[in-house]
Design a protein around this nucleic acid. Structure first.
Length: 230
DNA sequence: GCGACAG
DNA sequence: ATCTTGTCGC
């Protein structure tokens, strides 16, 4: 686990930091299909004053749960589109630090580089973890896309349009993946140390009968319970 | 100025 | 994110 910077920043400083850190995200292909994958998600108390993070470590391809951990804190940063990591990353890091076994890969509920400044929650965490990380969000933050076919396994690319009129170009920042037939797709993007193809492949390898892939689905389930027990 | 906007 | 159970449909 790396300690890259302080979390006590102004909104302007946070945005500047994102641009700087985005340049450190690596798109190196996975050497082999990971066997130990961790899912990460957060939840809040109804009054919105406390945040919880839950981590579930799974073994692929059977999805056996190897370990789980959680952490909680007082909320110190508001929800601002584009600055989500400054609200959720600290607790996520605390929860991951409690793991006895270090996962080969992380799947986070949020965007990877499919972000205005290319540093969504999953990419930010991926730099702290210094491990392959993928962002698997339930909705779009930025980027344009065509609706993917309705069959499970199909996907389209998420692109960021840039330029003016005649000089239109687009940059691929993620993929819109159908993890279940006839169900709303998920938004997949690189978090760190993997390619978009790797991210899509792992997401589909973790897709069962639900919309959310197992790591993220189980983490969401876990953090929901943690919230009630405290 | 207006609309969009992860969790 | 959160307030919330059963129910209709593929």
């Amino acid at each position: 686990m790396k300690k890259l910077h302080s979390w006590n920043l102004s909104y302007a400083q946070a945005r500047q930091l994102q641009v700087r850190l985005a340049g450190r995200v690596q798109f190196t292909p996975l050497k082999s299909r990971p066997t130990v994958v961790a899912g990460l998600d957060c939840a809040f108390t109804k009054d919105g004053r406390r945040i919880f993070a839950g981590v579930v470590v799974l073994r692929l391809p059977d999805f056996e749960i190897l370990e789980t951990s959680g952490a909680s804190r007082k909320v110190t940063f508001p929800y601002i589109p584009g600055l989500l990591s400054f609200r959720e990353a600290p607790v996520c890091i605390a929860a991951v630090k409690k793991l006895r076994r270090w996962p080969e890969m992380f799947m986070v509920d949020g965007q990877g580089i499919a972000h205005p400044r290319r540093l969504g929650l999953a990419a930010h965490l991926g730099l702290f973890f210094a491990k392959p990380t993928i962002g698997c969000a339930k909705s779009r933050l930025t980027g344009a896309y065509e609706e993917p076919p309705l069959e499970k396994g199909s996907f389209t690319l998420l692109e960021d349009k840039r330029g003016v009129e005649s000089n239109m170009q687009s940059e691929t920042i993620g993929a819109v993946v159908r993890t279940r037939t006839n169900v709303k797709p998920v938004f997949v993007s690189v978090g760190n140390k993997c390619t978009l193809d790797d991210a899509i492949e792992i997401t589909l390898a973790c897709a069962t009968r639900y919309r959310l892939p197992e790591p993220t689905r189980l983490a969401h389930q876990l953090v929901g319970k943690l919230k009630l027990s405290l």
